[in-house]
Design a protein around this nucleic acid. Structure first.
Lengths: 347, 347
DNA sequence: TTTAGCACTTAACTTAATGGAGTGCTAACA
DNA sequence: TGTTAGCACTCCATTAAGTTAAGTGCTAAA
């Protein structure tokens, strides 16, 4: 367990700030002017040597200034930093852009990713509140003619999922009705997870009373259901990658970029953060492609509607205190907006 | 009007080929070995000087080898090149990947963009056949409970478009039925364009017999309708940009990339190509961001179902003959597949 | 018309020189 | 014991100079 003196702490803080703002290694002389106490550059050099021994700062070459190491950022984030109060203008932007009327949760969540990336110039990820508590509240089969049927699934949270299928023989609404009614009787009100489970056990058997070939129908129902139960990260500010990356090689650039495109893979990268705002720096991120970046993740709580996730990817040299402040604001504002949205369907 | 001698033509052809394959300016000595006739490098130098006078090739500096100019590529494409027969393996790939079963036209069109970009390592754009001949074949309003209604629109080509709306007061199916029936009577069978037109004229008046407040309903219907009538390019191989661009500056990279993201803007860039395969090179493309690239565009015909567009963006130094061959193959295969698809709904 | 020969140009690479920023260490000082 | 001034040292970045290889245009002869 590392403990720093007051002065060492101030020096580390100043190094992190300078490097984050200017992007250049920080030397002892420039620190003399910035530190609140009156000490010579030699003294600072001595302290810096100690910070280096502790592994908190490193040199880029033998006689260069210092930059924070991963460990240094870590210490800074854990013990020195205080979250910055969100700028009033930023807060206005957030509230205004979430203030409009939305027809889908996904729109709200996607919009959040966009705003956050706009405010930070980094790349952001958002995940809607978990669906595990969602319940099936309605199922429809709408014959469209021409061998097509649309299956629609509604949850108690107002989520609507639909898919169109091509079927060998046209069906009339009358033929479909008993099946839909059966589904309604048996499954409405159950959590989606349970519906998925039942779908593999008792339902096929019972359904065979109503339909000669229940398999086709079950495929359809299952397909919409799993689409509704799937969880997808929204990515905002993908293009911002160009701002903060130091990569030159187009090949690496490409593979990084395509990582951001594989939204189904992002869950592995981001994981499930705890209650508080979590910062992972450099190689603390499990994915090798991101070992030179930092990832800030946080959950947000929407009462009994479960938790969602917001995340922020940027350079290791990012203004952590401002970013953490912003994440906090988003936690609150997004939760509030969604609570508002859900209330509409709870009535 | 430029006319080249047989020998000049062969030299230009060789320069284009060499530069396209190797990426380096081509000198007179290396051409000696490649040309089918027996001439010295000095002779080739003389010919090259003439080609340069004509503006077909240029030097990168006073004593460098030559590279084709825009005008040179133009001449090559117009007078020298012969489309390459499509590799059998490539044809298999195309046919196989379009061979599967699709539930939506958009899936086929998007898939085509992906395959073509995969085969070429460039970026591709595809547009589905024009909708102008599509006719409205069905309209549904499905109440979902919780203040939500889904509007579904079906065309005679099997296109399905849907959108969910939040409405102030819940409506039952019974209330909606006369409205839907009215729409069916008045509008089914008409081309979408005509439907759009009528929607702004006679319909609102007549509809007021059935509904107290037709405006809300018309908004809904109009919204789905315009969604169905909107034409969107699919973009394939966006990431391939990293392969063929020579840009270093992340800022330019970014603006180029975001051009590809604005799918609604692409129509301006791509235009409406004529019957044949059209090649635009460098500054022949109207968009300034693309002045260092080449764009190959072509239409494909699906009989009475209208025309679609495929396009290919790559470096000016691209193997035109192979690319034009591939575009030809796609014209045929995509048209065939779509004809097949439509036939299903024509029955 | 073609060709050999040659002087000339340029990019790309290597090497050397210089200045500046920063460090660690030593010795003196409070 | 902690702090400071001074100094030798290191490394990067930039500039300058030199070298090589590829390629050209031009001239004069075949």
């Amino acid at each position: 367990m590392i403990t720093l003196t007051e002065r060492q702490s101030l020096i580390l803080k100043a190094i992190v700030r300078d490097y984050t703002e200017g992007g250049n290694p920080v030397g002892s002389k420039s620190l003399v002017e910035e530190l609140p106490m009156k000490v010579s550059s030699a003294t600072i050099r001595n302290e810096m040597a100690r910070l280096e021994d502790l592994g908190l700062i490193v040199k880029t070459h033998l006689s260069s200034g210092r930059i924070p190491s991963i460990k240094g950022y870590r210490y800074y984030v854990d013990h020195i930093l205080t979250p910055e109060k969100v700028d009033n203008r930023d807060l206005k932007v957030i509230q205004h852009s979430l203030g409009g009327e939305f027809h889908k949760i996904d729109e709200i969540v996607a919009q959040s990713a966009d705003i956050l990336s706009q405010l930070t110039s980094y790349t952001t990820f958002t995940l809607r509140p978990e669906l595990k508590d969602s319940r099936l509240s309605g199922f429809r089969l709408v014959p469209l003619g021409n061998h097509q049927v649309m299956a629609i699934l509604v949850t108690n949270n107002g989520d609507v999922e639909n898919q169109t299928f091509t079927i060998p023989n046209d069906l009339s609404g009358d033929e479909l009705e008993p099946v839909v009614r059966f589904i309604d009787d048996q499954l409405i009100g159950l959590p989606l997870q349970d519906v998925l489970a039942k779908l593999q056990q008792e339902i096929p058997l019972k359904l065979s009373h109503y339909l000669q070939d229940p398999d086709g129908f079950l495929d359809i129902f299952g397909s919409v259901l799993s689409k509704a139960a799937s969880e997808r990260f929204y990515v905002g500010g993908k293009l911002n990658l160009f701002n903060y990356t130091s990569l030159q090689d187009p090949k690496e650039m490409r593979s990084l970029y395509s990582l951001l495109d594989q939204t189904d893979n992002l869950a592995n990268v981001i994981g499930s953060p705890g209650q508080h705002i979590q910062v992972r720096i450099g190689n603390e991120i499990t994915n090798d492609l991101l070992k030179d970046y930092s990832l800030i993740t946080a959950t947000y709580d929407v009462d009994q509607h479960g938790q969602g996730i917001i995340a922020l990817l940027g350079p290791t040299a990012m203004p952590y205190s401002r970013m953490i402040g912003l994440m906090g604001a988003f936690q609150r504002e997004l939760a509030r907006k969604l609570l508002d949205y859900y209330r509409y369907f709870d009535e």
